[in-house]
Each structure stands twice: as C-alpha cells, then as structure tokens.
C-alpha cells in the first residue's frame, strides 16, 4: 500500500508519528473550512471548527480503525462537530444561523441606486437560504466532490435517499433563486 494514502497516514498518526497529521491537514483543512463556512457563514466559527476536527483526530487517534474511506470518516467527524456546536449555541441562545440577516432584501425605494445583483450573488443567497440538511448535500457533492454513496455513509442513510435529497435540494434552490431574481427585478 502507498504509504502516503490518507488511510496510511492516519494509521501512522495512530502509531505515534504525529507529524503525519500535518500532511492530512494540508490535504483537508481547506475543504473542511469550505464545508463549515458554507454551512454557517461565520469565518471565526468555521476556523474554530476546523481546529476542533483535527484536535479530535489527535485525541481519538487510537480509535481509528482504518475501515472505509478516510475522507468519509473525516467529514462524519466534521459533521458531528458542526451539529454539536449548533446544538450548544442554540442552548446558549446564540444561533449560528444568520439566515435572516443574509436574506434581508432591500426596500423597494433603495433599489434604483443599488447596482443590480449579479446572477451568482443571487444564487449564493439562494444557497444560503436552503435548509441546512439540503444545503449540506449540495456542498458535500458539488463542492467537496464526495460520491452519493459516501454522503449516504456520512448521513447514515441510503444512497438512493441522498440522490432524492440532492434532486429536491437542487429544485428548491432553483425555485428560490428564481424568486429572488424576480424580487430584485433581475433580467
């Protein structure tokens, strides 16, 4: 086995070669950050969550079994971290959901002086408006390049269910983007 595969590196970390975690960090920290940021839209929280994922990897390295794909396992850890944080924040009354702020549509009277929104800005807003569970499937598939089978493992569901969810998420995204376009009088 190539000793530089993700799995081989993590097994080395498990055996005590902690420096090997550096290479895994270089390979995945950007993807994890993108995932967190697209889920919560908060730079500081996303950075903290990336750090906490790698802290967990270090802390629980002994329990790494090497079963399955490393990236699938890593994103499962990341997802748990995200939802744990989400739950804790909600309990403390601090929500990392800033959807309402993001969705604020300017008053009609402000529109003439405002530059027309670019299509991609509208799509970005629409994506941020999607419910977490739908946005998540799009992020993992479209941006992190995970296969439906891998996403199914992360979400603990079937591959077919993920495909259905992906289709419905895309349909909803398209509908929201269209309604925003109308809202902004986009031509």
């Amino acid at each position: 086995m190539n000793s530089n595969t993700d799995k081989a590196l993590m097994l080395k970390v498990k055996k005590g070669e902690l420096d090997k975690l550096g290479l895994l960090f270089e390979r995945y920290h950007r993807g994890l950050y993108r995932y967190f940021f697209r889920m919560c839209r908060d730079k500081d929280i996303s950075e903290d969550l990336v750090q906490s994922v790698f802290e967990r990897l270090l802390k629980y390295r002994e329990s790494y079994s090497g079963d399955g794909k490393f990236s699938t396992w890593l994103f499962s850890v990341a997802r748990n971290q995200f939802y744990d944080h989400h739950r804790r924040s909600s309990k403390n009354g601090v929500s990392i959901q800033i959807d309402e702020e993001r969705l604020e549509i300017p008053d009609e009277k402000d529109v003439p002086v405002q530059k027309k929104k670019e299509k991609k800005e509208i799509l970005e807003e629409a994506l941020n408006t999607l419910p977490d569970n739908k946005r998540e499937v799009i992020i993992l598939s479209r941006y992190e390049g995970l296969q439906y089978k891998e996403i199914a493992e992360i979400l603990n569901t079937t591959e077919g269910a993920v495909k259905v969810k992906m289709f419905r998420a895309m349909k909803e995204l398209k509908d929201i983007a269209l309604s925003f376009e109308k809202e902004y009088n986009y031509e």
């Binding site: 902690l18 420096d19 975690l21 550096g22 960090f25 920290h29 950007r30 950050y33 993108r34 940021f37 697209r38 730079k43 996303s46 950075e47 990336v50 750090q51 790698f54 802290e55 270090l58 299509k119 991609k120 799509l123 970005e124 994506l127 799009i138 479209r142 941006y143 895309m170 995204l173 398209k174 983007a177």
Partner: peptide, 25 residues
C-alpha cells in the same frame, strides 16, 4: 442552476488556521 454553482466564491481559511494547528501538533 447546478452549473451556476461553479461561479460562487470559494471561501478560504486564514493562515492563522495553519498556525493554530501546527502549534497544537
């Protein structure tokens, strides 16, 4: 819409993320 997702900006972490990680390591 799916194709349009390609045009969205790509969030990038600050270098501080790396610094924190290597300090922890």
């Amino acid at each position: 819409t799916f194709e349009g997702l390609d045009d969205l900006s790509v969030p990038k972490p600050d270098p501080i993320v790396s610094e924190r990680f290597y300090a922890m390591l």
